[in-house]
Nucleic acid binder design. Structure first.
Lengths: 139, 139
DNA sequence: ATCCGTGCAAATCCTTTGCATGCTC
DNA sequence: GAGCATGCAAAGGATTTGCACGGAT
């Protein structure tokens, strides 16, 4: 749940302009789903501002991701990107049937790559994703 | 490193026909890269059988994945699917710069979801992916 | 002989790009 | 006023689909 003012400040401080379109997109991110897709944002924005283009939505989401205001999440094999408004370190639990996505607020600090497996790589981060069936899909 | 005969047997036992195209694709999977893309398979197949279509390659890879002969891997944000010919339980180490992908042969059995986080989900599997820079990309 | 599998081309889905207009700073 | 941001439409890349033909069993 990011704070709208914080997101706006990210744009301002990087010398970008605050347009009505950007403000609307940021408002939706601050209030809506935790893992929206670009298309969901587009549908919601155009409900209020009919002429906003997908290009603007994609553009804004990209820049915000570059500024660290959202994270990109693509590990679910859905064929499209999700934007994760939770920028704290966390992991995911994904229902392979209905694609419901839940945050796991556990850091898995114990997950470390055995050095003999690291083959000289400099590890920057790791992601643990659980795949399963949500309660509704276990029938 | 799957065995060609095993892959062929998967098709046979499920009542599917062994065509020259399928055999060629399976041979490439049995001998080639551990994490090929559909396009790479297509390029390699057409080098020997010029008229094979992408549809056949995608089709064969799909069916083989459904039969468990390969795993689909999409957690790298490249915008396309990779097929993982290593069907043993394992995890991945990915270079975010050159996209080199290495298998981690460690089971991370200690990674379990705290039950209070599972929110009723039936967990089927989990994937640990490390993102970093390979030795060549650390300059 | 029966189907399943194939190649082709077009279609689809998500995302990106080019460009002239318009608005924020 | 300067320059970035916008909308539009077209392009792009990966993958899927429809369909008539051909080959495997």
């Amino acid at each position: 749940m990011p704070d709208l003012e914080v997101l706006i400040e990210l744009f301002r401080q990087s010398g970008r302009k605050i347009t009505p379109q950007r403000r609307a997109i940021l408002e939706l991110l601050a209030q809506g789903s935790v893992h929206p897709t670009a298309e969901e944002i587009y549908q919601q924005v155009t409900a209020m501002m009919p002429d906003v283009s997908r290009a603007t939505v994609y553009n804004t989401l990209h820049e915000l991701a570059a500024l660290g205001g959202v994270n990109e999440a693509f590990e679910f094999g859905e064929g499209f990107m999700r934007y994760d408004t939770n920028t704290q370190a966390h992991h995911h639990l994904f229902c392979i049937r209905c694609h419901t996505l839940v945050d796991i607020n556990h850091d898995f600090a114990e997950v470390a790559l055995p050095s003999e497996e690291a083959v000289g790589y400099q590890i920057l981060r790791h992601r643990v994703t659980f795949y399963g069936l949500c309660p509704d899909c276990q029938s």
